[in-house]
Amino acid sequence: MKHIKTYNKSTLPYHGRELIIEGPLDGHTLQKYTFDHGLVAFRRPDEQFEAIIEIADLEEGRIIICRDGINIVGYTTYLYPDPMERWSDGRLPYILELGAIEISQHYRALGIGTEMLKVAMMDDAMEDFIVITTEYYWHWDLKNSGLDVFQYKDIMQKMMGSCGMQVFSTNDPEITSHPANALMARIGKRINNEQIQAFDNLRFQNRFFF
C-alpha cells in the first residue's frame, strides 16, 4: 500500500492569538519547532520529541501537532501497531494505530485533542485504513485531571468518537484486564468486507487453543 500523506491545517483561538493544528509533518519540519516541557506522559520531553521525529519519517508514520507559535504543545502519532501486540499479526498494511495523543497540561480543556483528530481524518487517504486505538487507564493523567477512571474514560471515548471512532469488543487480555480499558477503531470508507473480517479475527483470538 502506497502511503499518501496530505497536509491539512486548522486553528483554535487562544488568548487573542491562534493555535495551529497541522499535519502530517515530516521530521525536517518538526525540527524547526520546540517541544513543550509539559509533554511528559511517556518519557522525557527531549526523548519523546526524538521519537515523534522518527515516526514522522516512517513510510506509514503520521504526526499531527498543535503549536503555539513555534512551540509544540500537543501531538498525535499514527503508525503500524507494535510488533509485540496482536494488532500487528499478519502485518496487515491497512491497520494503522493511533499510538499516542498528548497535550501539555496548561493547554488542556481547549478542544485541542478533538481538533488534532479531525485534522488527521481530513486526509482522504485515511479512508483506506482501519485506524485503531487501545485505551489503557494506566496511560491517563488521572492525578492532574481530578477525574476518576470512568469519568476519564467517558471523556476519552467522546473525544475519539468525534473523528468517527467506535468501541469494538475484543478478548485481548490487556484490554479485558480492566473495565475502563477499550479498543476503539474507525473503519475507512474504502475498507472492504475481507479486510473487516481480518480485523475481526485479530479482535478475537485464542492463542492457546489446541
Rank of each mutant, 00 (worst) to 15 (best):
R186K: 15
F150E: 05
E135D: 11
I187S: 04
S162R: 13
M165F: 05
I112H: 01
H15Q: 11
G27H: 01
D200G: 04
E18D: 09
D128E: 15
I4C: 10
T77S: 15
Q197H: 10
H106A: 12
G164I: 01
F150H: 12
E59V: 06
R44E: 15
K2T: 14
G61K: 08
P93M: 04
N8H: 15
K118M: 11
Q151H: 09
D36N: 15
I101T: 14
Y80D: 02
N192V: 06
E18Q: 14
P13R: 08
K118A: 11
L117D: 00
V119Q: 12
G164N: 02
D154M: 12
P13W: 04
Q151M: 09
R44S: 13
T77E: 15
D124E: 14
G16S: 00
R91F: 08
G23K: 01
V167Q: 10
H28S: 14
E127N: 15
E174N: 06
T170R: 03
R203L: 02
G188Y: 05
G188R: 07
D200F: 10
T176C: 09
T114W: 02
F42K: 11
I130N: 03
R86H: 09
S10R: 11
V119L: 12
S104E: 00
D200W: 03
Q195P: 11
L147E: 07
F199R: 07
R186M: 07
E47C: 09
E85N: 11
D36E: 03
